[in-house]
Design a protein around this nucleic acid. Structure first.
Lengths: 217, 217
DNA sequence: AAACATTTTTAGTTTTGCCTAAAAATATAA
DNA sequence: TTATATTTTTAGGCAAAACTAAAAATGTTT
């Protein structure tokens, strides 16, 4: 499996979650910052290897085999992120690009040993679940802050958008995984929220709230 | 710098140590398990980028810029080897292939943080020196066991050949870095040696002795 | 120094992964 | 439902990195 094939599988995997239909070549091309025609080429190759199911003009979807491969790449990516943050003191907004490279290292032993070394973490630094060595993903109860009702006490358990600008905003506001959040009021006009984050008052836009995962206390 | 270019630089670097003249395309092709014609192509490209000095039919040598790059790849390779052995419990005969992949990961921050995490090791698991972040290599006093005189007490500090078959042989004989070795006698016929390794008697062929680095106590 | 052998380079292909431009299929609108 | 717009695929090309086979240069013998 080449570097490039792995990237395609990963992208198709991510586009698939919560999307039951076939993934369009356009969507893939957008995500990969490439061209639809390039995607068509690669998708044919992946179909040849039975990693995706593909019918012309109908989009693609992962086969079970393809899904299994994709999940393993995600596992590697997220384990490396934990390593970078927990062991090498990277911050959560710095890990993505390096993990993108590390996820392609081929050695089952390496990844299982790393898993053990990190104490079998179940989530990465952004709160995303880490598949176990069999590809099983423990799903966590979580909801968007924007969809949470008033006066609820919740804790922050993840981010939807993990762009560094969003993560740096959260750092600035001292919101981290594990932060206690209470929704004090919701502005009707723009859906912005008044919060208490670790007992300190903070006002956030709906866009912020729509990218923060929380779970009830 | 591509993956392939890095591999060429690394190979040229290794062939250069202890070899003042230009490195032949044939030598490089042998080392890389490829063909001389392929080497010629790549060498031209590297010369274009001023990483090597190259004159047709005269072989290649690294420029200072090329040497600096090569040393950084070696630094990464050896640091990752330390990581694998010290932190993930790999044995010294298992690390090479994985380190070969990891050495191409691009992130200065990663490698400096890793260095720090490992406590700034000066040698890799085979006793080879690890260049510091400026490319400086501390050279260690060491000699081949085969060139050591009788009745000398030495300790094992490295291996010349780091193939897994040799390393596994050493494991079996319980010879490791730090082992105390005394040369009891040398057989004139085949230059084989009678040793005491950690006070236990052991007889080894000249070939073994010619691949073990030791230093006087 | 000429003849032969070896090494190195050149020339021309192949494969992979991408591209552009044009054609084909599908989706949307009048 | 036909016309128009959008999406997707095909066709043909390009660059990187490898290869084979042939040509050129260098080395080695006699």
């Amino acid at each position: 499996m080449t570097y490039s094939e792995e990237n395609y599988l990963k992208v198709i995997y991510h586009l698939s979650t919560g999307n039951s239909k076939g993934i369009t070549t356009n969507a893939i091309a957008n995500e990969m910052e490439s061209k639809p025609s390039s995607v068509t080429d690669m998708v044919k190759k992946l179909a040849e290897k039975e990693l995706v199911a593909y019918k012309k003009y109908q989009g693609v979807s992962l086969t079970e085999k393809g899904r299994q491969h994709a999940v393993m790449i995600v596992r590697k990516h997220r384990l490396w992120e934990v390593f970078l943050v927990d062991k090498l003191d990277f911050s959560w907004d710095e890990v993505h690009d390096v993990a993108e490279q590390l996820e392609h290292i081929k050695s089952e032993k390496l990844i299982d040993k790393l898993d053990e070394f990190l104490d079998f973490p179940t989530e990465d630094p952004h709160g995303d679940p880490i598949p176990d060595r069999n590809g099983k993903i423990a799903k966590m109860e979580k909801q968007l802050l924007s969809e949470t009702s008033l006066n609820t006490k919740v804790i922050c358990v993840g981010v939807k958008d993990s762009s560094s600008s969003f993560l740096q905003y959260l750092d600035k506001q001292q919101i981290a995984l594990g932060s206690a959040i209470e929704i004090v009021s919701r502005e009707h006009f723009d859906q912005s929220l008044s919060l208490k984050v670790n007992d300190k008052p903070l006002s956030v836009s709906n866009k912020i709230a729509a990218n923060l995962f929380v779970k009830p206390l």
